[in-house]
Computed example of a mutant assay.
Amino acid sequence: MAKQFDTIEDAHRRFIEDQHIYFVGTAAESGRVNVSPKGMDSLRILGPNRVLWLNLTGSGNETAAHLARVDRMTLMWCSFTTRPLILRIYGTARTVHPRDPAWDELYASFPPDIGARQIYDVSVEMVQTSCGYAVPFFEAPRQRETLTKWAEDKGEDGIRAYWAEKNQTTIDGFDTGIFDDA
C-alpha cells in the first residue's frame, strides 16, 4: 500500500497544508529517539525537495542536538478526517539559529514569534504515503494559544533565561548549540 516519491508533489503539498498537526522524528547515533508533535503556523514548503519548519521554545531541545550529530529527520502527517492517509518526508536537515546569517531570510517566511528558537531547513530525499486506515477520526476545533502567551509573558530576556536553564542539553546530555558562537 505504501508508495514512494522523489519529490513533494502538488497533491502531497495540498494534503500537508490541510493538516493541523505534524510529527518530527530525529535521533543521534546513540541515546533516545525523539518524536515531537508540532502545530501552529510553523511549516513552509519551499519547493519539491525543501521544507522549513520554525521551532518554537519548548521544554526540550532534542532536535537541535540530534541534528548536530546526525542530520537525519523524518516529518509525518496523518489525516484525522475523511480520507485516510499517512505522509512521511525523509531527509536531512540543518539547524539555523537566530545568530546565523541565513536566519533573517528564512525567518521572514513565518509570522514573528518571540519564542522562535531555530529553523530547520530540510532537504527532502523521499516522500512516502501509506493508507492510514487505523488512524482514528479527530476534530481540531482551534489552535492552542498557550505557547504564544507563555512566550509573550516571559519576554525576550525570560526566553533566553529559559534556554539557559532548560534548552542547553538533551535528556541524553548532548549539547544543543543554543548559545554557541556564530
Rank of each mutant, 00 (worst) to 15 (best):
Ile16Asn: 09
Glu17Thr: 04
Asp18Ser: 14
Tyr22Pro: 03
Tyr22Asn: 00
Phe23Glu: 00
Phe23Tyr: 06
Phe23Trp: 09
Val24Ala: 02
Gly25Phe: 07
Gly25Lys: 11
Thr26Trp: 01
Gly31Cys: 12
Gly31Thr: 13
Arg32Val: 14
Arg32Tyr: 14
Asn34Ser: 15
Asn34Ile: 10
Val35Gln: 13
Val35Leu: 13
Val35Gly: 08
Ser36Pro: 07
Ser36Leu: 10
Pro37Glu: 09
Lys38Val: 03
Lys38Asn: 02
Lys38His: 04
Met40Thr: 07
Asp41Lys: 10
Asp41Cys: 04
Ser42Ala: 10
Leu43Met: 15
Leu43Ile: 12
Arg44Gly: 04
Arg44Glu: 13
Ile45Cys: 12
Leu46Gln: 08
Leu46Arg: 08
Leu46Glu: 11
Gly47Gln: 10
Gly47Asn: 07
Pro48Glu: 15
Pro48Arg: 14
Asn49Phe: 13
Asn49Arg: 15
Arg50Cys: 06
Arg50Tyr: 01
Val51Ser: 07
Leu54Pro: 01
Leu54Phe: 01
Asn55Glu: 09
Asn55Ala: 08
Leu56Ile: 06
Gly58Lys: 03
Gly60Cys: 09
Glu62Asp: 14
Glu62Ser: 08
Thr63Ala: 15
Thr63Gln: 13
Ala65Arg: 00
His66Ala: 06
Leu67Met: 05
Ala68Ile: 05
Arg69Lys: 09
Arg69Pro: 01
Arg69His: 08
Val70Ser: 07
Met73Tyr: 05
Thr74Leu: 10
Thr74Glu: 11
Thr74Gly: 05
Leu75Pro: 03
Leu75Cys: 04
Trp77Phe: 05
Phe80Leu: 05
Thr82Trp: 11
Pro84Phe: 11
Pro84Glu: 09
Pro84Met: 10
Ile86Thr: 08
Leu87Pro: 00
Ile89Ser: 10
Ile89Asn: 12
Ile89Pro: 09
Ile89Gly: 09
Tyr90Trp: 12
Tyr90Phe: 13
Tyr90Lys: 13
Gly91Phe: 11
Thr92Ser: 15
Thr92Val: 08
Ala93Ser: 13
Ala93Gln: 08
Ala93Trp: 07
Ala93Lys: 05
Arg94Ala: 05
Thr95Tyr: 06
His97Pro: 07
His97Ile: 06
His97Gly: 03
Pro98Ser: 01
Pro98Leu: 00
Pro98Ile: 01
Arg99Lys: 15
Arg99Asp: 11
Asp100His: 12
Asp100Leu: 04
Asp100Thr: 01
Pro101Ala: 10
Ala102Gly: 03
Ala102Leu: 09
Asp104Tyr: 04
Asp104Cys: 00
Glu105Gly: 05
Tyr107Glu: 06
Tyr107Ser: 06
Ser109Cys: 12
Phe110Ser: 04
Phe110Pro: 03
Pro111Tyr: 10
Pro112Arg: 14
Gly115Asp: 03
Gly115Glu: 00
Ala116Val: 03
Ala116Trp: 00
Arg117Glu: 02
Gln118Gly: 00
Tyr120Cys: 09
Asp121Phe: 03
Asp121Tyr: 02
Asp121Pro: 06
Val122Tyr: 07
Ser123Phe: 12
Met126His: 11
Val127Trp: 06
Val127Leu: 03
Gln128Met: 14
Thr129Arg: 07
Ser130Ile: 01
Ser130Lys: 00
Cys131Gln: 05
Cys131His: 05
Gly132Ile: 02
Gly132Lys: 06
Tyr133Phe: 15
Val135Cys: 09
Pro136Asn: 07
Glu139Asn: 15
